[in-house]
Design a binder for these strands. Sequence first.
RNA 1: GCCUUGGUGGCGGAAUUGGUAGACGCGCUGGAUUCAAAAUCCAGUUCUUUCGAGAGUGUGGGUUCGAUUCCCACCCAAGGUACCA
Length: 1139
Amino acid sequence: MNYNFNKIEAKWQKYWAENQTFKASNSSEKPKYYVLDMFPYPSGAGLHVGHPLGYIASDIYARYKRHKGFNVLHPQGYDSFGLPAEQYAIQTGQHPAITTKDNIARYREQLDKIGFSFDWSREVRTSNPEYYKWTQWIFIQLFESWYDLEADKSRPVSELSAIFAAEGNTRVKAACDDDIEDFSAEAWNKFSSEEKQRILLKYRLTYLAETEVNWCPQLGTVLANDEIINGVSERGGYPVIRKKMTQWSMRISAFAERLLNGLEKLDWTDSLKESQRNWIGKSVGAIVEFPILSFPKGEEKAKPGYMTGGNNSHLLIEKAKENRKNPTEAEAALWSQLRNKQLDGYKFRQQHLIDDFIVDFVCLSKKLVIEVDGGIHKETKEYDEERTKILADSGFEVLRFKNEEVLGGIETVLEKISNNLAQLKDYSDQENESNIPPSGARGIKVFTTRPDTIFGVTFMTLAPEHDLVKEITTDAQREEVEAYIEATAKRSERERMADVKTISGAFTGAYAEHPFTKEPIPIWIGDYVLAGYGTGAVMAVPCGDQRDYDFAKHFEIPIKDIFENADISEEAHSGKEGTVIANSDFLSGLEYKEALQKAILKLEEIGAGYGKTNYRLRDAVFSRQRYWGEPFPVYYVNGLPQMIDVEYLPLHLPEVEKYLPTETGEPPLGNAKKWFWNRKLNKVVAPPLEGEGEDIFPLELNTMPGWAGSSWYLFRYMDAGNDEVFASEAALDYWENVDLYIGGSEHATGHLLYSRFWTKFLKDRGYLKVEEPFKKLINQGMILGTSAFGYYTYYSIINKFTKEVIVDRKLVFIPKEVYIETLAEGSDSLEKIIDRDVDINLKERIDKGELILGMPVNYTHIPVEFVNSSDELDVEAFKNWRPEFKDAEFVTEESGAYVVGREVEKMSKSKYNVVNPDDICEDFGADTLRMYEMFLGPIDQAKPWNTAGITGVHNFLKKLWKLYYSSPNPSEGGEQTFFVSEEKASADALKTLHKTIKKVTEDIENFSFNTSVSTFMICVNELSAQKCNSREVLEPLAVLIAPYAPHIAEELWSKLGHSESISTATYPEFEEQFLVESTKNYPISFNGKMRFTMELPMDMSKDEIEKTVMADERTQKQLDGRTPKKVIIVPGKIVNIVG
RNA sequence: GCCUUGGUGGCGGAAUUGGUAGACGCGCUGGAUUCAAAAUCCAGUUCUUUCGAGAGUGUGGGUUCGAUUCCCACCCAAGGUACCA
């Protein structure tokens, strides 16, 4: 019987499905093993042969582990929320749920044909409400958590509130927003509920924050970086700008150190771990604060808020204003005497901000602060002391009066003030008050990894988006700066990073003060500084940093050399090791490391900075302005987010008529007719009518990103149907985490980091016991397509005088060489071709110059299914494909065929190079497809698909089949029938078998599937040559190959007399004894080049080998009379003769 | 730009720890079988060659008795670069 793969494969696929052969149990005597593929997105195009590559590899491993006695969990499902379905919905109006369902059905059908051992009873889809209920639940858990930096773990927010109520927020160390104000327990307890919510939001692991996005006003939507091409949208070509938007963020940065350290224990490739390390980007350095030295004239009056810290000042200003409106009696009395330069002509300000403090009165020109105690603005004693200290540090004198003093005898108070004013140094001589930072030490914070080079700072650069830019820019520079900011807003972040050639920037006109030298440092803005990195500002050290160097050269900013023996005439000296600092005051003469330490110490000493570890990892934006994603279980009361109670989950995705943003630019959910939450009824309702708004609040309009559902799906598979919890404790305890994960390296920093983050979070909160989701990870490379190209000319002949068109764009396909030659050298060959095609009379008239011949050339993709393995085109099929090719002519080879050009590209519909796995299964069988995909090359590398090569693997399976179909007495002319001999196998056959067991097992453990396929081929070739038909060899061979070619293995297994599936048959054991060799075929090299080989006994000694080799006549011939200088002998390996 | 991976015959690729470069398969060439074709089987197939041999693993250097493998510099290609999944 012939190898009828279609019949065999259908039979066993049916058997597996009916018997639930691969259904995994959540309890078993056997050890567990969890094999997972990266979550597929079911695209509309269906699977092409590139997709199953990783699934085949994981399936082989899963099946191998079953043979090895493991209880294997090998599930599959769909990451079914995503942009493509939404795009399709926008274009066609078709609901994404419907297209997604269809696509999944198609995927499933295709997957089933390949014979995977998936446990389909556990299938999940992220877009199913039963699934996203738990994604929403996890979001709520994140919202209800904060990160305790001391315990280094996530804790419930209720515990944080308790801490605040007991001791305020000054002692707790938490991962939080930058703009946190200190408050006491008393203060906390007095805060309104809303105030508390606002503060807690700054601590939660998911929080609302302003983030920069790529906004396309015309499309009314946010675009991904790769949806932007040259600053305009890919769709439509509309302009895109950077815009700030309030969005949900995930505080992944709190986990940075754990994500970094956790890598060490993972069995991932070094390159992948390295990618994650770089992404997390830990750098140790210092925060340095440069006080802003100058403000433009008049500005300090108009804007009293030049404080340290961004949003703090805004809050303080509000408070100060309030204070001004409601003075105490004493304050009001004093102010009436101080205002309008009444006292000795000195100008006083009331309720003024200095640093982060509000003082009652201040005379800036004398740096004198007047405080009146005991009023309604009374602060705690602790706070007062701290404030006095900081004010003193900034050079302010503080004068305190009690309420009674002011009210009892204002004359005495005024006299005291007056005396003080007279004694104090006058700061107003330096150009008004503008040289004194009006509010004290407002500064620019920078993060630097090289505080040792601080004396080399000659300018500062801020990101153009930096909050301070608008405030510090002088009138003279304003126009230039604003134009620059506008220009930058048009460039994407990636563009800005990639483009190092164009140096651009603008001077703000402002200066900062060097913390040590007190020299003024000009403040520039430049787009090489990114707002999201560090503090969005750098201290530029042109002598030590190339980008600063280039910037300085370009704008002719001085470059200060602070290195010993470094040449900085051409480029910056960025080396660290062995660098000695010079020209740097107390750092001079110190080596890099010492200088670094000392610089940080000094900075801390003078209060201008402190050592800090910085991470490049930014908090992850979690909002998407899309329809087809998980809705947030969130509604808003007075703009503050509220979580829907867990018992009312899932919050279903609403129906909308249009999947586009609303006319007012809101996300697509804004189109939903019913998208409000009734807090009383706990359900989704229509917008409130007049008078019934009390319990009805708007729901969140954004949806979650693609990575929400895929960050935790591995745990859902452990207990997929559970509607009480995301997975039961028993299931989680049994399966723990994924033992082997296979997928593309493109997920290195996205999915793989986010799922590690969520796993750590869920562990902290006690929902999981594991710290990591994926123990071992293998990357799969992409399978590329081999595109086919046709080259053509479309020539026209026009009458020079009458302009009559005689031949209109006639299409002639030409050989590739002619095309290339025409482009490179000229059209000689092309003309010859056209001459043959053109009517003789016309040709004569062309030669006479009466007619003009135009013949442009071009190329086009040709569908690969029209091309055979010899690159010859099926001309008729191609002509019928599209009307424009109907009348095309073809210049053929001698054989009469038109030969296409070939090139390797990504497999894609638009390139007409997609190969469908269904077709391959139909023509060659799933077993052939599986083995061929593995045979193509190493699993982790990209390689082109070439269907022509598949016959080799197919023939191999036919040969394998024949080994078992070797009826000793086939009837004359009849087919071979199944036969295995029960006799002892030959020594050669056993050697072949055990050699194969050894190699294949090693390969499978090393995920070197391509070499194991080769090994099988060698094995079958050898056994065929040996005419081996003994059960002793063929039975273990069937098990050995079963993970790779399961259908044929099942068939042979049943023919061998087994009634159970082969899937759990015991894996054959390798035995060394069959491989023992007594001789070695030694390569004999001369100066490292192998010239001939010699068969010598394995146990021969070094001396004997040398003697034997030297005595050989071929050795003497090679040496040609010379005496060798040296003879190197590695027993069992080689002989090398030098000389 | 930065990070990661890779570069070996006409093609996919192999080569364990520095030890016979090109296993295995495709393609190609020749042969057997056949009226013929398909299928199958056998032999050959890195390049150059004056048939002695010589060269050769992206390029240029280095270490070594010996380098595809280790080191340095460079070139090229692919993936990622934070809203494609």
